[in-house]
Design a protein around this nucleic acid. Structure first.
Lengths: 132, 132
DNA sequence: TAACGTTATGTAATAATATAACATTTATAA
DNA sequence: TTATAAATGTTATATTATTACATAACGTTA
């Protein structure tokens, strides 16, 4: 069970926006959208984003510099993220596949390194774009 | 066998620098280092980087906005990359593990999406940093 | 080799992404 | 209540990346 976090005012505004959008949002697009709610500066956005990422409510899509709400209701998967990204329409969705996450969470090699976190991004064409 | 690409002047200068450094380099640090060779503008660097990424001579470490020379001499692995990143010393190395790459290259789920490419970044503490 | 298309280069300006530094306020909990 | 941590507000600035336009070099093939 995920720890319930009481989001602060700015965190809540920004999380709600990202969550409602259902797709990855960029920091300055978020900023633009929350200006009417009194959030005026980039740093206010980035601080909220940092926190939301930290507690796993959102994830950063690194290859896109964008943020998406966590789509795994029951997970504390912020340390083990996987996404599929359509290179044509830029649709992104979070992959929740227990085999995959087990495989990767248990992955180890000869480097002597202990992996505590991973992020995986798959690219390709989604069903829609493939059939065009 | 990888296709032999004839690098252009700027591409060669920039590839050699990254390759010699042996570690991830950021675009503006590259720029600084090649200014004495006549490469004066960010765009010249980004263009060479884009091409080098495209042909698989270097990879972008997305979470770090940095570029590292491909460490797999015999691979055309630019469409299937995996890295281990130490969160303390920021050391990065490319993982070449055939089981892992097979597993991920063959991964598919119910989304109907055909994955043609992936990038995986593992995070943790390297051997050295762990023992500190 | 001349003509063509493609790839690479040069240059200036600017857009997009992200953080530093500092002051103040609010929430938490001992 | 007091002190400690977390969050906010604000300005300025750093870092990363692209647009737009002009020119040059390269590779093919007629």
């Amino acid at each position: 069970m995920q720890k319930e976090h009481n989001l602060s005012k700015n965190q809540k505004i920004i999380f709600d926006l990202i969550d409602k959008s259902g797709e990855p949002m960029k920091a300055y697009s978020i900023l633009f959208n929350v200006q009417k709610k009194g959030i005026k500066a980039p740093l206010q956005v980035y601080r909220a984003l940092d926190k939301l990422v930290e507690i796993g409510k959102i994830h950063k899509i690194e290859s896109r510099n964008a943020f998406i709400a966590c789509q795994n209701s029951s997970c504390q998967i912020s340390k083990a993220t996987a996404f599929s990204i359509c290179e044509s329409c830029e649709n992104v969705s979070e992959i929740s596949n227990s085999k995959l996450s087990k495989y990767l969470s248990n992955f180890s090699d000869e480097s002597g390194m202990k992996y505590s976190k991973y992020n995986l991004e798959f690219f390709g064409l989604c069903k829609k774009c493939k059939s065009k």
